[in-house]
Amino acid sequence: MKNDFGRNKKGEETSLFILENENFRLSLSDYGATIVSWIYKPKSLELVAGFDNAENYVNHTAHFGSMIGRVANRIKDAKFTLNCKEYHVTANKGGNSLHGGENGFDKRLFMGEETADNQIVFTALSEDGDEGYPGNLEVEIIYTLLEDGIRIDTSGTADADTLFGITNHSYFNLNGKGSVLGHVIEIPADVYAPNLEDGTADGTYVECAGTTFDFTEPKVLEKALDTDDAQVVMTQGFDHHFNIPGEGMRKMGSAQANGLKLVVRSDLPGVHFYTGNFLNGNYTGHNGVNYGRQERFCFEPEFYPNAINYEGLKQPILKANKKETQSIEYLLFEE
């Protein structure tokens, strides 16, 4: 099903695509290839933050449900070197570039097509020089509605070496609204990345064991946040990258509440865990719900933040004329 979703900043018409099965009703927009709504039908429960029209997405800065690229998270000082050439990308977060720049994938109008009863394909061309990145990058994002959740397969092909490291930026609450501090969180990571004052990961890893960052055993979020850890104090909660051991599709993290368990899987190197620290109640979305501080959380599978500027880390480099696919799954189970 395809419906009108309003107009973007340029006045272009946007659309809302709806996929549905016995368990879920999933609404997606071609504006930002965005997860607008994800309803768990047995509980009539809205699982994600979002708005009811494109105009509200144009005016918000929290990236609710959008696909993020060309590169997720920060690029420090908005510059990087690739093949001995320095590139300058858009600085939209202080002196750094965040989530693809001022007009990243979350602000792009994709072409959408329903290719199967349970599948929507979004495509776009990010032209050479877009936000400062090299190469014409063809992007394909395939959303598949599963019996137990959502799968997102994002492919990139470019005519020159470039950067390509996506994520999805959905904000979850398994209660539908209110605080997420009672959610039980698990992240199978032995190390996490500390942040600098500007929010950029500092290029190192720190052991989780013995710290409040240890989620290898399920832990109530409120308990984890009850700490004087300098990193948590500085970011007013969790806003950190965790390295997930292994390769291929594997568990990145999980959250439990309201008799439900959300499991996030991906083939990306790690996951950024964010506890909605900077939501301030300025946004009102589905069903009149106001999104306040720590009333949502994000699991964002991605490369190490600013990895392109750090040696020894897996970097989001896409070689010319080589197709690469990065995948994310959000799975939901009743406990």
Rank of each mutant, 00 (worst) to 15 (best):
D226K: 03
T227A: 05
E335H: 03
F273P: 12
G149M: 06
N23W: 07
E86M: 09
E329F: 08
F122I: 02
T81G: 06
N173R: 13
E197A: 15
C208I: 02
E207M: 00
V184R: 15
L262T: 09
K319T: 12
L145D: 02
G182H: 13
N118A: 08
D128Y: 02
K76Q: 10
H286N: 14
K43M: 13
K314G: 00
Y283W: 14
D159W: 06
D128E: 05
Y40W: 14
F238P: 06
G281H: 10
A307R: 00
P301M: 03
N277S: 15
G248P: 11
E113L: 04
K76Y: 00
L163H: 04
G248Q: 07
T90G: 01
G156L: 12
D239G: 05
E102A: 12
L318P: 00
R151Y: 03
F297A: 04
F164S: 04
L313K: 12
T90R: 04
L145G: 01
D267T: 06
L26C: 06
V36Y: 12
S66M: 08
Y57C: 10
D202P: 02
K43T: 05
V36D: 11
L318A: 08
S254A: 13
N175A: 05
N92H: 02
K85D: 08
L28T: 11
D198L: 05
N136H: 07
A54G: 06
F105E: 02
K319R: 15
Y171G: 07
K85C: 05
S15F: 13
D148H: 09
E12F: 00
F164D: 05
T34H: 09
L260G: 10
S37H: 08
K85S: 10
V232K: 01
N282L: 14
A320Y: 10
Q119I: 13
G101Y: 08
A193N: 08
G149W: 04
G281Q: 08
G101W: 06
G135R: 07
Q231P: 02
Y31F: 15
S97D: 06
F105Y: 14
D77Q: 09
E22V: 02
R7Y: 13
H286T: 11
Y57S: 04
E114C: 06
A54V: 15
E324T: 12
G69K: 09
N136I: 05
G292T: 12
M67C: 10
T216H: 04
S254R: 05
Q256D: 11
G210K: 01
R25W: 11
A158K: 07
L279F: 15
N83G: 03
